[in-house]
Write a protein that binds this DNA or RNA. Structure first.
Lengths: 204, 204
DNA sequence: TGAAATACTAGAACACGTTCCTGTTTCTGG
DNA sequence: CCAGAAACAGGAACGTGTTCTAGTATTTCA
């Protein structure tokens, strides 16, 4: 607990970022994803990330003030991509439950395909403290948008749609944690989520 | 990764435990709760726990093979107490939602009263890997029993009661995580859980 | 353009979870 | 009661996240 130094760090990607800085940030995220994909949370070692992205350790910490920030940011970028792919068209299905199942099934499958990467990112999400709130919210907002869109279908806003999406997202994360914790099998993740969708979104 | 030593450790409280060993285990848990209550997860330092419980560091690790094991075990013992207090009589309320609200409100309030202790325990629950599955399941089982009992009321088994309890427990944990992560206020924890109860357990 | 501010590199240093080692005490079976 | 086994004490040592320092390169702006 020393007094704060004069210099203000640049934790957030600002719009006044030089090309070299954008490139560094991209290299860092890329190295992080590669390491996580190969060995999960523990394989993402800050020294190794710095070395692979050809950046000094101190610089890595200037861009991402902790390992958790780094991994949550990586997840945000992944959810962003997933979201862009899925939001191109309305999810198919006649009922809310069918549409949400479609979206969450695709999301779940996409994550479980790279279990170690998912382990690293989800673990970071759960370990996040208040200093990472912004990054965590970005991830949750991305997921929430997907689910809310599926709940609404073509009918527009519905009562409690945002709250229902939050519940489903909570279950979605919790089931992944249970899987990471070795308490359920990968196959059960989807079964449990599907079951929750049916219970939370009964057909009218 | 060395070959395993011949001696079998004693991770689980066996029934052939000497009185001195039971006392050591109790001292360790007690020191853990005290430290966590004062300073949260990071204040529970293994050297400090060992010192306060008058046990060598190696011995601490013989009883609890990691910090996460230690904290999850502490939570199991707390949930046990909570459960015994709450299960004395049927929770009041005419509807499922009312009874579950009663139980979860008491549980939530009981936890939020000691925020740092809760932070330590919940964080450990989320950080648990497969080696802690047994301890984590003990905690979840205790909570699940409470909720299922509340859903059933005097009417006995109901369709999907266990699955509904699991969903509510997922939301319950997730909302606490959100609070720990500085994304929602303490007051919102209960509001969100209450909202989820209403949505998941509609009056018949 | 030149000087101050900022960003970056390289690497040492620190903190805490975890492991390991050595010697002593306590328990258990005969 | 005795010998071997298991448990414990005390403490050194290691790994990885994080911080800090000193020196160099780059950017900013008057």
């Amino acid at each position: 607990m020393t007094t704060a130094p004069a210099a203000v760090p640049a934790p957030v990607p600002s719009e006044t970022e030089t090309a070299a800085q954008r490139a560094r940030r991209a290299r860092i995220i890329s190295a992080t994803l590669a390491l996580a994909s190969r060995g999960g949370y523990e394989a993402v070692q800050m020294r190794e990330v710095a070395e692979r992205s050809e950046v000094a350790l101190g610089t890595l910490y200037r861009y991402f003030p902790s390992k958790v920030h780094l991994l949550v940011s990586a997840m945000a970028s992944e959810v962003d991509q997933l979201s862009q792919r899925l939001q191109k068209r309305q999810p198919p299905g006649k009922t809310r439950a069918e549409r949400v199942s479609f979206v969450l099934e695709r999301s779940t499958r996409s994550l479980l395909r790279d279990p170690l990467l998912t382990e690293a990112m989800v673990r970071a999400m759960m370990a996040a403290d208040a200093t990472v709130a912004a990054e965590v919210n970005a991830v949750r907002q991305g997921m929430s948008d997907l689910i809310v869109q599926a709940i609404r279908g073509d009918d527009g806003e519905q009562e409690h749609d945002v709250e229902l999406a939050a519940i489903l997202q909570d279950v979605w994360f919790a089931r992944q944690i249970a899987w990471l914790g070795g308490r359920i099998e990968a196959a059960d993740v989807w079964r449990d989520i599907h079951l929750a969708i049916g219970l939370v979104l009964p057909d009218d």
